[in-house]
Design a protein around this nucleic acid. Structure first.
Length: 424
RNA sequence: GUGAGCGUAGCUCAGUUUGGUAGAGUCCCGGAUUGUGAUUCCGGUAGUCGUGGGUUCGAGUCCCAUCGUUCACCCCA
């Protein structure tokens, strides 16, 4: 009898036709901006050797410890569905020699996988668009990608995002600072909440990010990362700020801004919104100057960012911005004998030959005039093309405007292409 | 991984207090209108009430378990 229904895997969502127009719109806008900055697309596998992530993201991060979809394949190889794309991008660059005395501006799009408990804006399969730039040491490229992300939001019409920036300093300075922080918080160990006590062992910088208001006083008087920066990082950060100031872009220096992944150094930044509940970070990135070498390549400065498409689509849907739809331009109504269907198909194909951008839906599956008109209306088409036995006999076609008050038009079939060509 | 809320028609939900034949709107189909949608009116299709146990003469309703889902913690894009 009825079989048990198989549903999608927890946290892995179908994106239904109702939503895909917004996704396509979003992706189109982002691609245009990336193109305008001369970035090149790279397409990367979703599956990588597990070791790649162990070596790059950081052994003690939550992602590696408990959020990866890992398995052993038939050969006994340990593989992982990528939780992020930076590691794979670095791997690909090394493997194909892309970093050899070259500057690369790359971008990618695709799904990522993390085994987290799903909630608003957080899913086990989610989509990111990101960019990775290799071979540029100076703060000019830091400014470029921040300005480019700002342009994304302008092009999309989103104006409710806040830019936060910070510098983590050199890897050495960061290690030194982390030790200072551990010393400081250890002195107040009993006042720390359970989460922060755990972070003290796993990721001390994260304590600064705590949402628990009771932690605030302790965090306020903690040593500041920006005070512990090495001289070069201080200069780098100062120059970045000058570049940003000059372009008039608004930002907030957030000394508590850290990254979840271990490989970051110097510049880090985040675009944040208050409108998505707990998952307010919509785009984030930073420098990772030591990662290429760490994975086995020649030392190469690098910076990148990633944005969560689900979160940005949610923001777009929440906004008052007009969203595109994929409504056809015309719906072809066919009523009558087989000759009508044959002539209708022929006409439709010749329309598509002459007008490749015309979006024309044929009525298939027959139906009465009434039901075909209902389908035409529901499709959102501006225009109904009507071919029935009368029109067939006289080599005519009837046009009816479905969205505006205009009289019906009866044309010779031979005039149809020209008539439609001159529509808006 | 922890906590709380919610699972009743394709969709949005009422019904649970006080156990007694399964409801509404919407969608879809048909008709009023035999060549015209969107509005209006009439009719129709549609549910093992998440699943499995238990209590009871009788469970959508009470009890237990389990699964799913949403939000928050955590984590992060």
């Amino acid at each position: 009898m009825a079989k048990k229904l198989i549903s999608s895997v927890r946290g892995m969502n179908d994106i239904l036709p109702e939503q895909t127009p917004v996704w396509r719109y979003f992706e189109t806008v982002i691609r245009q901006v990336l193109d305008s900055y001369g970035y090149q697309e790279i397409r990367l596998p979703m599956l990588e050797a597990t070791d790649l992530f162990n070596r790059s993201i950081g052994e003690v991060t939550d992602i590696v410890e408990k959020e990866m979809f890992s398995f052993t394949d038939r050969n006994g190889d340990n593989l992982t569905l990528r939780p992020e794309a930076t590691a794979g991008c670095v791997r690909a660059g090394i493997q194909h020699g892309l970093f050899y005395n070259q500057i690369q501006r790359l971008w990618y799009i695709g799904q990522m996988f993390r085994h987290e408990r799903p909630q608003q804006g957080r899913y086990r399969q989610f989509h990111q668009i990101g960019a990775e730039i290799y071979g540029i040491e100076g703060p000019d490229i830091d400014a470029e990608i921040i300005l480019m992300t700002a342009r994304f939001w302008r092009q999309l019409g989103l104006d409710n995002l806040e830019l936060q920036i910070n510098s983590l300093g050199s890897t050495e300075a960061r290690v030194k600072y982390t030790q200072q922080l551990v010393d400081y918080f250890s002195a107040y160990h009993d006042q720390l909440d359970d989460d922060s006590q755990r972070r003290l062992r796993t990721n001390p910088l994260r304590i600064l990010d705590s949402k628990n208001p009771q932690m605030l006083p302790l965090i306020k008087t903690a040593p500041q990362l920006l005070d512990c920066l090495d001289t070069e990082s201080q200069e780098h950060f100062a120059k970045l700020r000058e570049l940003l100031d000059q372009t008039g872009i608004k930002y907030r220096v957030n000394p508590c801004l850290v990254r979840g992944l271990d490989y970051y150094n110097r510049t880090v930044f985040e675009w944040v919104t208050e409108y998505l509940g707990a998952q307010g970070t919509v785009c984030a990135g930073g420098r990772y100057d030591s990662l290429v070498e760490q994975i086995g390549g020649k030392a190469t400065p690098a910076i990148g960012f990633a944005m969560g498409i689900e979160r940005l689509v949610l923001l777009l849907l929440q906004s008052d911005l007009p969203m595109p739809n994929n409504a056809p331009d015309a719906y072809f109504i066919l009523v009558g004998n087989e000759q009508v269907t044959k002539q209708g198909m022929y006409l439709a194909e010749s329309l598509r030959d002459a007008l490749p951008n015309l979006r024309l839906v044929m009525n298939c599956g027959e139906g009465s005039f009434k039901s075909q008109f209902k389908r035409a209306d529901k499709s959102g088409a501006k225009l109904a093309l009507i071919l029935a036995e009368d029109e067939l006999a006289n080599q005519k076609i009837t046009l009816k405007y479905l969205r505006e008050k205009r009289p019906q038009v009866i044309l010779a079939q031979s005039e149809l292409i020209n008539y439609l060509k001159n529509l808006d």
